[in-house]
Nucleic acid binder design. Structure first.
Length: 1049
RNA sequence: GGGCGAUUAGCUCAGGUGGUUAGAGCGCAUCCCUGAUAAGGAUGAGGUCCCAGGUUCGAGUCCUGGAUCGCCCA
């Protein structure tokens, strides 16, 4: 009883995938695949949480399928791979979305609206696209447990983050400092360096050269003005000092009435070549001089100081110092005991300290301030300046560098340790370790973890109203223990609720929570422990859950999640949080442009899935190129991938099932000869199969799905275009039952093993094939390929056979080229093909000559191994073997080889003798390996050659051969008629033919053969059809008219 | 301004440790096959391997410099 399920055409691919998906749902296959490995060694995967308040795009498909393939692979190899989904819930993107919905903007708007209600809406907004995310996740076959996903806003999660922050605080790794930070005045918050990195834009800012006249009555500098250059004129009112570079010579340049001071080296750049330098002053003589500030509004020392950070690369070599608005400026101010006055409020507007522009946003104040300076004759020159300036990555507001208190984690303390740990991480590509990520770590600065925002993990720090002492609270229990009010059992640990809970300070005073929330990157970096509510629940260690064996995200996460994970892993556990990292590239459109909604070039994942299916989408992403390069992505490239690989595979599978399902077909378990007794073609296929298993396993174990996938592509191509092509007849000829059984068993095993190898890549088609190739026939087999074990490579490699087959393929290609040259179609049988090649090749090919003969449609294959006669030989030195031996004498050797008598040399080598040549007075013995031969047909043969092989065909078509060719043509015509009549491949027919004398002669000569080929039980010839024809057609065969009638037998 | 990566056929991409005539797919042209058929195959045209130096008997491959593009940092 055959149990094969009928198979549909490849064009119904997406319907097939939907059916498989349904089977997974019904059988709960994902859960089962994990559960059945319980007790095995864990393989730890961390899901980097996406934010679900936007639609998932094609780039999310990229990361999600890479997150899928390795867990699937390791599951099949016996590891337990828990896959907990996660969602990043907090942060500015969410707040911005809610602000947009509410039509409010900025912090005052939010506070007027009410933090409680605002945060409630943020919580809702987070889940808005959750359903679409889950639907896409399922449809692309990303197996991850979304039912128990961690969410960074969950109470348990927040408590774990509190634990982390409080632990760092207790270790003395957290501090608060007034520091200049990149600050977004619209969002009202400082940005972390990795956020700043997201928002550089090329802009044109005003840049001005301003004069700072030195005050009269000082030792040096009477009548001189310092020249400073700035691209942020709005910082000039806050000027406190002018910094110069120690050890640099400063020039006094005459400019009209004025005498300007600037670094001597920069005079030509600033003043032009003709500038007159009056004299030169060493930096030391300028230090300490006082000058007239650009605006006499804010008190200060207005003094010249020396600082190492000043360069003479650009500007004037004198730097305007506004301590509140620059990191270097602040350091200079600290070093020299200067104040850091700040005339700009939190919204980025000038305060009453600068009446001229009070209430004006700083960037808008530039022109007014410059106009005022100009009017006072203090501007030397002003030119627009194009540079890259950081903007808020969410709202595009230009960032201000701005002094304000912030909370920091002292990551610089563990910088070297992070570098150590990073050295042991398996990065893919490897250059990220020392390159992009390593360089980033080397330049590490303390991590600013506080944000003055609303929707985030509140910092668990309480500051005493009386003694200012800060208490860090590591758990809700600890909070309850020292709270001065009742803490509800269902505490929402978000603002504003936690802000209403004062606690008792050690000094007896009352402490209130500091207003800031945590950087969302701290949330995601905490996921290794927070997703398990560590250390509050379950085991108090993370054994089997930390570190991860594998994480995977886009390359831009080097500064984001990859960093926050490593920083927290190092600080809290002194261990790298991941062993292997796979980086992914960007998804660009087909023209290499970044996809963006405004350009309208976004390829939606659903478009790809609906048209080409998830397997094709996945296969493209895995195999198109190295995953960390940018993808030039379009529907077309996925479609091409699908046709090239998936359809080829599917056609091969359909071929097997079609013939196996016939009544006289075959089922798994039917007896078949053992592999070693099967024909060469089968042994070759199994050898290739074993080689591929080995390769795919090794490449996947090394996180290289691209090479693994390409090995599979080659195998499928070999099977389809060589094995099936040459073995086709064995699948339906009844005269060799052992050969038929061997063919079925071989192809079945290949496809079954391929379904296993393919399972992590294309889980749908792999399972579909497994179901029909294995599961339906064997009730004890795993019902899904994803519950099966990864195959072990067999021991049937036969490299000699593989090599011989390559030669056979080459001979076939050449034979076909020869036919084309001679204009002899393949259907016309010929007497013989002559293969000219070295004896070793001939020995190798001998066992395969039947295959070559059949492919070339010739009766005989004859080998010619002697040079001369059929072919001429030319000799070339083998540089690969001779080069290292000869060194600089190599050109002389090449000349010596060219001088050899080719025919005699080849004869000697073929006889096993060596050949000696004299090169630069030394005798060199040449072996067979050292000489490469090229054969070329001699005159008179229509042949084709390639390297050491040449194939010639006897072109004489005898009458007998002609009749045989005609018979073949008739078979083809009848087969076409069968197709036109819509018959099944196994239907028996009766045929009646009518045609010319030549046609009749061909039929008479080959009647039995023709009937056999077309499954005819009766074949008649002549006028008048002796049965009621199901189908009839008139046509031509080899220019002869032929009428074909046929009917079912 | 600095770091990292890329640049190979019209397009998309392969090309361990340097070694014969640099490959594949798509597209194009010309054919073939027809018991996988809304498939399949063959042949052909198409290359200054970004440029310039260098190392070497020999460089797409290694070194130096430059150009262009991308990402990251300042």
């Amino acid at each position: 009883m055959r149990r094969w399920r009928p198979v549909g055409p490849a064009s119904e691919w997406t319907a097939m995938e939907e059916r498989v998906l349904e089977r997974w749902r019904e059988g709960d296959v994902f859960r089962e695949s994990v559960a059945m490995r319980r007790g095995g060694e864990p393989y730890v995967f961390y899901e980097g949480p996406p934010t679900a308040n936007g639609r998932p795009g094609s780039h999310h498909v990229l990361s999600r399928v890479f997150k899928d393939i390795f867990p699937r692979f390791h599951t099949m190899r016996g590891r337990v791979v828990e896959r907990k989904a996660g969602w990043d819930c907090h942060g500015l993107p969410v707040e911005l979305e809610v602000e947009r919905q509410l039509g409010i903007s900025g912090k005052p708007g939010i506070e007027a609206y009410g933090i409680a209600e605002f945060n409630r809406r943020c919580r809702e907004s987070v889940g808005e696209y959750l359903e679409e995310w889950e639907r896409l996740t399922e449809r692309i076959g990303f197996w991850v447990d979304t039912s128990e996903a961690y969410r960074t806003m969950d109470t348990d999660y927040v408590e774990s983050v509190w634990w982390g922050l409080a632990t760092l605080f207790e270790k003395g790794r957290v501090y608060e400092s007034d520091k200049v930070v990149p600050y977004c005045p619209r969002c009202g918050t400082a940005l972390s360096s990795h956020e700043v990195a997201l928002g550089y834009q090329d802009v044109v800012d005003p840049s001005i050269y301003v004069t700072l006249p030195l005050l009269p009555g000082q030792s040096t500098g009477e009548g001189l003005s310092l020249l400073v250059w700035t691209t942020t004129p709005w910082t000039l009112p806050a000027n406190q000092a002018a910094a110069i570079s120690p050890g640099t010579e400063y020039a006094v340049v005459v400019h009209g009435e004025e005498r300007l001071v600037m670094a001597e080296a920069l005079v030509p750049a600033v003043m032009g070549e003709g500038a007159v330098v009056e004299r030169v002053i060493p930096a030391a003589d300028l230090a300490g001089l006082e000058y007239e500030p650009p605006f006499d509004l804010i008190p200060g020392r207005h003094v010249v100081v020396m600082s190492g950070f000043v360069t003479t690369d650009d500007g004037t070599g004198i730097v305007h110092i506004a301590p509140a608005f620059g990191e270097d400026d602040m350091r200079v101010a600290r070093d020299h005991g200067l104040d850091a006055p700040n005339p700009v409020d939190r919204e980025g507007r000038f305060t009453a300290a600068v009446p001229l522009v009070e209430g004006v946003f700083v960037k808008d104040a530039d022109s007014v301030l410059m106009g005022d300076l100009e009017a006072r004759g203090r501007v030397f020159r002003s030119v627009p300046y194009a540079h890259s300036y950081p903007h808020c990555w969410r709202c595009s507001t230009p960032l201000l560098y701005y002094a304000k208190p912030s909370w920091y984690v002292r990551t610089t303390d563990v910088r070297d340790r992070m570098l150590d740990l990073n050295a042991g991480v398996g990065w893919h590509p490897g250059h990220v370790r020392e390159g992009r990520f390593g360089k980033w770590l080397e330049g590490n600065v303390d991590w600013a973890i506080s944000r003055e925002r609303y929707w985030g993990t509140p910092l668990p720090f309480w500051r005493c109203d009386d003694c200012s002492e800060v208490t860090a609270i590591a758990s809700f229990a600890a909070l309850r223990a020292c709270a001065l009010v009742d803490v509800p059992a269902d505490l929402d640990p978000h603002r504003p609720w936690v802000d209403t809970i004062p606690v008792r300070c050690g000094c007896g005073g009352t402490a209130h929570r500091v207003p800031e929330v945590a950087d969302v990157w701290f949330d995601s970096g905490a996921m290794p422990f927070a997703q398990h509510h560590y250390p509050f629940e379950g085991s108090d260690d993370l054994a089997g859950r930390f570190p991860a064996d594998f994480v995977c995200e886009a390359l831009d996460q080097t500064r984001g999640w990859f960093y926050s994970l490593l920083a927290e892993g190092t600080l809290l556990f002194d261990e790298a949080p991941y062993r292997n990292v796979v980086c992914l590239g960007l998804i660009l459109d087909g023209e290499g442009q970044k996809m963006s909604k405004s350009k309208g070039n976004v390829v939606e994942p659903w478009t790809v899935i609906d048209h080409a299916g998830a397997d094709a989408f996945r296969w493209y992403l895995f195999t198109a190129q190295s995953p960390w390069e940018s993808f030039r992505f379009s529907l077309d490239v996925v479609d091409e991938t699908r046709r090239r690989f998936l359809f080829t595979l599917w056609n091969t599978y359909v071929f097997l099932v079609t013939y196996a399902a016939l009544p006289d077909g075959w089922s798994p378990g039917d007896p078949a000869p053992p592999p070693e007794e099967r024909p060469a073609m089968d042994r070759w296929a199994l050898s290739r199969l074993d080689a591929t298993v080995e390769q795919v396993t090794a490449r996947l174990a090394d996180y290289d799905p691209t090479a693994a996938g390409r090995a599979l592509e080659e195998l499928v191509d070999d099977l389809s275009n060589w094995y099936v092509r040459t073995s086709r007849r064995r699948f339906w000829r009844g005269d060799d039952p052992a050969g038929t059984a061997a063919a079925f068993a071989t192809l079945h095993e290949c496809l079954t093993t391929i379904s296993l190898l393919l399972a992590p890549f294309c889980p749908f088609v792999a399972d579909e094939m497994w179901g029909n190739l294995v599961a339906v026939h064997d009730d004890t087999a795993p019902p899904s390929v994803h519950l099966a074990d990864w195959p072990d490579p067999g021991s049937r490699r036969d490299q000699d056979l593989e090599q011989a087959m390559v030669a056979a393929m080459e001979a076939t290609t050449l034979g076909r080229a020869a036919r084309k040259n001679a204009k002899l179609k393949v259907r016309q049988p010929l007497l013989e093909a002559v293969i000219a090649c070295p004896p070793a090749t001939a020995r190798m090919l001998h066992g395969l000559s039947g295959i070559v003969a059949e492919e070339l449609n010739v009766r005989e294959i004859r080998f010619v191994t002697d040079a001369g006669g059929l072919v001429e030989v030319t000799l070339k030195p083998n540089y690969r073997t001779l080069g290292p031996r000869m060194g600089t004498a190599m050109p002389a050797m090449a000349a010596a080889v060219a001088d050899l008598d080719a025919t005699a040399t080849v004869r000697a080598l073929d006889a096993g003798e060596s050949v000696t040549v004299t090169v630069q007075g030394r005798d060199e013995v040449l072996r067979d390996d050292d000489i490469l031969r090229e054969v070329r047909p001699s005159e008179g043969y229509a042949v084709a050659e390639g390297g050491p092989l040449a194939v010639g065909l006897s072109t004489h078509v005898t009458h007998e051969l002609e009749m045989e060719g005609l018979a073949r043509d008739l078979v083809r015509a009848i087969q076409n008629a069968r197709r036109a009549a819509d018959l099944n491949v196994a239907d028996r027919i009766v045929v009646h033919l009518d045609g010319s004398g030549r046609v009749r002669e061909a039929i008479d000569a080959h009647r039995q053969w023709i009937a056999g080929e077309v499954l005819a039980t009766d074949l008649t010839v002549g006028h008048g059809v002796p049965f009621a024809a199901l189908h009839r057609e008139d046509g031509e065969v080899d220019a002869e008219p032929v009428a074909i009638s046929l009917s079912r037998a």
